[in-house]
């Protein structure tokens, strides 16, 4: 019997790949640099802010000192109304996000899968996408009242579109050659969906979901600005009316932290769900 020895031949693939050289890594790529440099920028910014207020370069009535802002934040964190407001705004954000992104996934999946839907719905998606949707906030206030519902709806409407658009884009990104391959193996429609379409679309769709979460917080705050009795947005507005600018600033700083934490959490979830992205 003839035997053909494949391993005895040199393998072109390996010959051509040069042996890994110890790479010269710049200091800028190292973790200390990635933490240290932004920290220096932040400290400098806060320092300049503090100094310019202390030196009287800006009016302390309109721009509070950094120190005053942090003191105000610390004091506020001892109060009950602050945490009640935080909880309410968080609920509005997360509920709006849940409703908006689930609907976005469903509509996006239908639009991306069925041509009828695409033809019928896509023009409206584009039209709404280019409408400043926050302009609807007063309308929602009239329809759904002063309470939580109008904010949830606002958040949902804002975060609906990036999910739709990214889901459609994700579904459209399935490689034609991969479809051909699945057909040659005689894959059924569910097999093609679960083994090809879904994993292809998931990373792109999820990028839309990430944006949606940030937008949901924005939607909730805008909703509160337009008309509400409670919530972090209400606090920002009222503190500014009362010229308690340090407290107003403090709430904004706190909102920034909430936004960052939410983003961090969803990114963590993404890394667990979509392990094949690099």
């Amino acid at each position: 019997m003839t035997t053909i020895d494949t391993s005895a031949q040199t393998r072109a693939d390996e010959v051509l790949v040069p042996a890994p050289r110890p790479q010269k890594r710049s200091f800028l790529d190292s973790t200390p640099a990635k933490v240290l440099l932004p920290a220096i920028v932040l400290a400098t910014a806060i320092g300049l802010w503090e100094i310019s207020v202390q030196a009287g370069l800006v009016n302390p009535i309109t721009v509070p000192a950094a120190s005053d802002t942090f003191i105000a934040l610390f004091e506020m964190m001892q109060t009950e109304y602050f945490w009640a407001a935080t909880w309410l705004t968080l609920q509005e954000t997360l509920l709006g996000f849940a409703v908006g992104s689930s609907l976005g996934l469903v509509i996006g999946a239908l639009t991306g899968t069925f041509k009828v839907f695409r033809t019928a719905i896509w023009p409206f998606v584009v039209a709404f996408q280019n409408t400043p949707r926050v302009a609807l906030a007063p309308v929602f206030l009239t329809w759904f009242g002063f309470g939580m519902t109008s904010k949830v709806v606002m958040a949902a409407v804002i975060c609906f579109f990036p999910v739709v658009i990214n889901t459609v884009a994700g579904l459209a990104s399935v490689d034609d050659n991969a479809r051909v391959l699945f057909r040659t193996y005689g894959a059924s429609t569910p097999q093609t969906f679960f083994k090809l379409t879904l994993p292809t679309a998931a990373p792109i769709s999820f990028a839309g979901i990430k944006t949606a979460l940030t937008l949901a917080l924005l939607g909730a705050i805008v909703g509160e600005f337009v008309g509400a009795a409670e919530g972090l947005g209400v606090l920002v507005k009222e503190f500014n009316f009362q010229l308690e600018v340090a407290s107003g600033f403090a709430v904004v700083v706190f909102l920034a932290v909430i936004g960052l934490v939410l983003y961090g959490l969803i990114e963590l979830l993404e890394r667990r769900l979509i392990t094949w992205q690099h």
Binding site: D175, N177, A178, V180, L181, R183, T184, Y185, P199
Partner: peptide
């Protein structure tokens, strides 16, 4: 389609 006795290979590797 789906004949197991036919193998198909393209210019692109088309890996998942």
């Amino acid at each position: 389609e789906g004949r197991r006795d036919v193998g198909f290979m393209l210019q692109q590797a088309v890996l998942m």
